[in-house]
Design a protein around this nucleic acid. Sequence first.
DNA 1: GCATGTTAATATGGGATTTAGAATAAGTGG
DNA 2: CCACTTATTCTAAATCCCATATTAACATGC
Lengths: 406, 406
Amino acid sequence: MAQIITGNSDLIKQVNRSLVLDLIRQRGPISKADVKQITGLNFTTVTNAVKDLISQGLVQEIGYGTSSGGRRPMLLTLNPEARYVIGCHLQSTELIVGLYDLVGRLLYSESHSKLPADTPEMVVDRIRTGMYNLLAKAEVDIKKVEGMGVAAPGPLDAENGVLYTPPNMLGWHNVPLKQMLEQATGVPVFVDKDGNAAAVGEVWFGKGKGVRNLIFIIVDDGIGAGIVVHGQLYRGSNTGAGEIGHITIDLDGPRCSCGNYGCLEAIASGFALVRKAGEAIRRGATSQLTPHLNNITLSQLLTAADAGDKLACDLLEECGRLLGIAIANVVNMYNPELIVLGGKLIQHSPLVFHRAQELAHNRAFSVLAEKVRIIPATLGDKYLLAGAAALVFTHLFRGPMNDLPA
Amino acid sequence: MAQIITGNSDLIKQVNRSLVLDLIRQRGPISKADVKQITGLNFTTVTNAVKDLISQGLVQEIGYGTSSGGRRPMLLTLNPEARYVIGCHLQSTELIVGLYDLVGRLLYSESHSKLPADTPEMVVDRIRTGMYNLLAKAEVDIKKVEGMGVAAPGPLDAENGVLYTPPNMLGWHNVPLKQMLEQATGVPVFVDKDGNAAAVGEVWFGKGKGVRNLIFIIVDDGIGAGIVVHGQLYRGSNTGAGEIGHITIDLDGPRCSCGNYGCLEAIASGFALVRKAGEAIRRGATSQLTPHLNNITLSQLLTAADAGDKLACDLLEECGRLLGIAIANVVNMYNPELIVLGGKLIQHSPLVFHRAQELAHNRAFSVLAEKVRIIPATLGDKYLLAGAAALVFTHLFRGPMNDLPA
DNA sequence: GCATGTTAATATGGGATTTAGAATAAGTGG
DNA sequence: CCACTTATTCTAAATCCCATATTAACATGC
């Protein structure tokens, strides 16, 4: 039994406070009368809850609304400046820190270059100074920072915020990032893998609002996913759910870095495309990538495709096809309402997206395929930074009973 | 927002009552003092809750325990005869009805033959009379029946208890089974697909006790699964989660009944094995199945394998291998703590199970493969009947906050 | 401009439940 | 027989919600 929650007046209070707070957050300017109407709570209860929330600074009265035949209602909204949230997107070569207000607006962000050889201590220090820079710029007191969310490359232990062996970070093994950052900054830190952050971000700020079953698939150098079921982030038993890069699509496919054969990541990821391009050229294919044969990059490949390079286009199309089949598998297993695709390959190549979408719809079990929507990520290039921030919002707004996005 | 739960004294009461009830259920004979200790509730609260539960007949005092240095504790248990539950396993050719007491013991069961051409009305009537037979035999008043759980073949709508188009049931389309049965019997009915029932049964009565993330895979004529995540049954957006029979394993595989190519069900199900056996014999393979060429059954194939028939053994081994690869995919996507395999192929062929187990462990992403346990079903041949009953137990024992199996 | 009705918000008293702490009951061990 | 421990019951106080009455502010029609 994870955590026994007993019923007492405190629980009631928490339940109702968070219910009211979340309603004010979601339904924008709203009167107490409407809150009473929607929740079914007694007016006195609503009044007391709102009084509490106002005294905590979370909610503010913004003036009277229009009358509908009687006394004008006092409208309530979230106070955007009541609390702030730090988002942090950690990659092997870049580090972005952003400051969000309570309604999820990005106020400032800073990008720091990062070398694979940088130590955890150096990175933590850079995040700390980045955070203080942002706070200074926005003139925000650190006391108003509700927490920091970190989107990091997996595999990791989300509960304890420990990075196991992030790719391309030399010497990083079992780094207790959460603990280090909390010590360095003094604010609560929530670490999760990038796929999960992206999923939560989409549910919180994007087209996933109100969606209870959603999967976010990141197609980048590698392939990973974040999964939301029953309106909550699903991490599996060891933060390993969503390793869709390593599902077998092709029984006789090439060997993958994980040791198996025919994994999705081995045939449809950014890395795989680059490898395939090199192989094709060596086999004699003509392509504008030929001069770069020994160090083709994904960006070059995408650029070549934009310019109509046949090899690049074929590779992307095939990538989309394989992705589509994998997505069909995901649909058959999870029967989600929404699948969101993100990552460099999706963002820069409509071809990949459309092919994947088409094949997923064709190949998934028809009843399920009809219902699922498959869309590209809606939060632009900072989707992982927003997702990192959303990790904190989830904790801030969740009560014992209201089931919230992720 | 699905259902707004507000906090009031009634919620408190429900939370604590169900917490105490569930504790008594799980920890067997237990004293109020221990309940207080474990839950952290006040003694008065525990006393009142227990008083309520006793007056409802759900809990009974069974005498004093041994002293540990002070007054002897009065021990509490569930009253097995307080309520009863009907389980019903519906298949195209057979119908089993069983009567379970509150602690999950099967008191009586009846098997009825069923023809594919039987109408829903006939089946409902047979279930009704079956139920009354059982109640008469056990001398149980129908008022004590908490509900009926039905494990049925998918696809179906579990919420409304509607069977869409169950295989091999002629003329069954959108049958509102829940509604029909509730009208016929007067007790609450919970319909779910067989995979889900099996999963819940395993969590409730089998090796899945206390497991929060589990997947039950049924390998029979077809292949399906039931999924438990966060300790709750996961049905997906349209009761379609767990259609693992239709995930693509082999890009260039044979056509499946669903219209795609290389689905697991098309290459590793009972139906597929029978088809493959016929094909192999026609191609000239020698086998003791040859005389039955035009109507080979799965049982014959399994018997042949037991007798050492090379073709049958090879087919089963290949089946296990393919299953193992599919299971590895499931592990990579769900990262469950436990995978349970059931169904005719698993129950009758250790070869299939062991091969599948081995390959799944070899092919899944290593971090996840190390943690997952893969075991055969533990509830014998009535696992689906038990699962059907468990569907009701879930409703009976779940409170607003205690997260229970399924 | 005033009476009437409507909507929003506040104030008051009552009820349900938990909690804390004292009191009681029933043991153990020396 | 006494000191100590454990289990249980009893009583009073606290907290929170709810129902109802009341006040406040506005719209509308005459």
